[in-house]
């Protein structure tokens, strides 16, 4: 296998290594540029030092309809410094330089992609070292032109499996998903206020049946117990966004304490991924 092939398959490598160790994945989410560009790089490094298996990174957007107050505020903090998309990619480049193997996913909104041009956005993302892109407001029905560009540029298009998905939707996700599948733990928007519902074994069985990419459970995950329950239920891992971003928000005046708390949080959550 050549280097570039290795690089484009970071998720597969991660899942293979975790399986060998009998562990699930823990994936924290933070907003790029929150609260500012330099602090943001340190925050992401703290997540990696704490033991994150992969990273899910948001790009700040003015109108995030799938996000609750915690992540909305993170976007507002980042945008208050007038952060540009180009700077967001620079943050990722910096992280990638010192971390060649960790899978990095973007979670963002369609208009940021469209305005830059789908092809240019995905090309820039690939060059910055991004492995996957999830667009919160692009459902399967609108996804084809994004998937086509993703394939051209070596990016994995991440699809969302909501708890109310029909068999038809799950079958289509099975055909098109790459990297991992974002399994929604509940209805609503992002936020730690409403806890995740651990998926019924029936849904997990269906995901297996339709051969979807490994499911990572997200929305409402803030405790090690929830991570452990998610993995016991059959998820390949868990994503925690608002709980992670809350640590940033609560320690804005004390960065050293912020990084330390983030490292400890990720370490505790990671510890719960052992099967």
């Amino acid at each position: 296998m050549t280097n570039s092939q290795l690089n484009t398959d970071r998720y597969a490598n991660m899942f293979a290594q975790l399986n060998a160790k009998n562990e699930g994945a823990f994936v924290p989410f933070v907003m790029v540029g929150d609260p500012d560009v330099d602090t943001s790089v340190n925050i992401i490094n703290a997540l990696i030092e704490g033991g994150a298996d992969a990273l899910e990174l948001g790009f700040p957007y003015s109108d995030p309809i799938a996000d609750g107050p915690t992540i909305q505020k993170a976007a507002i903090r980042a945008l208050s410094h007038k952060i540009k998309t180009t700077q967001c990619f620079e943050v990722i480049k910096k992280v990638r330089e010192s971390n060649p193997d960790i899978p990095i996913g973007l979670l963002l909104y369609s208009n940021l992609v469209l305005k830059r041009g789908i092809e240019k956005f995905y090309t820039d993302a690939a060059e910055a070292g991004v492995d996957s892109i999830l667009i919160a407001d692009v459902p399967l029905r609108e996804a084809d032109r994004f998937i086509a560009i993703a394939e051209q540029t070596g990016i994995k298009q991440i699809l969302i499996a909501p708890p109310n998905a029909s068999d038809e939707t799950l079958a289509e996700i099975g055909k098109k998903s790459q990297g991992y599948t974002y399994l929604l733990g509940r209805a609503g928007v992002t936020g730690a206020e409403t806890a995740v519902t651990i998926p019924a074994s029936e849904l997990v069985e269906k995901l297996v049946q339709y051969k979807v990419a490994p499911p990572l459970l997200g929305f409402g995950i803030s405790t090690p117990q929830q991570v452990s329950d998610a993995i016991k239920s059959g998820a390949a891992g868990a994503i925690s966004g608002s709980a992670t971003v809350n640590i940033v928000a609560e320690n804005l005046t004390n960065p050293a304490q912020m990084y330390e708390t983030l490292r400890n949080f990720v370490s505790d959550m990671k510890h719960a991924t052992k099967k």
Binding site: P139, E142, P162, T169, L184
Partner: peptide, 11 residues
């Protein structure tokens, strides 16, 4: 036009 909303709202 189109339906650029989270998958959750499609049903």
């Amino acid at each position: 036009g189109g339906m650029y909303v989270p998958e959750l709202l499609i049903p």
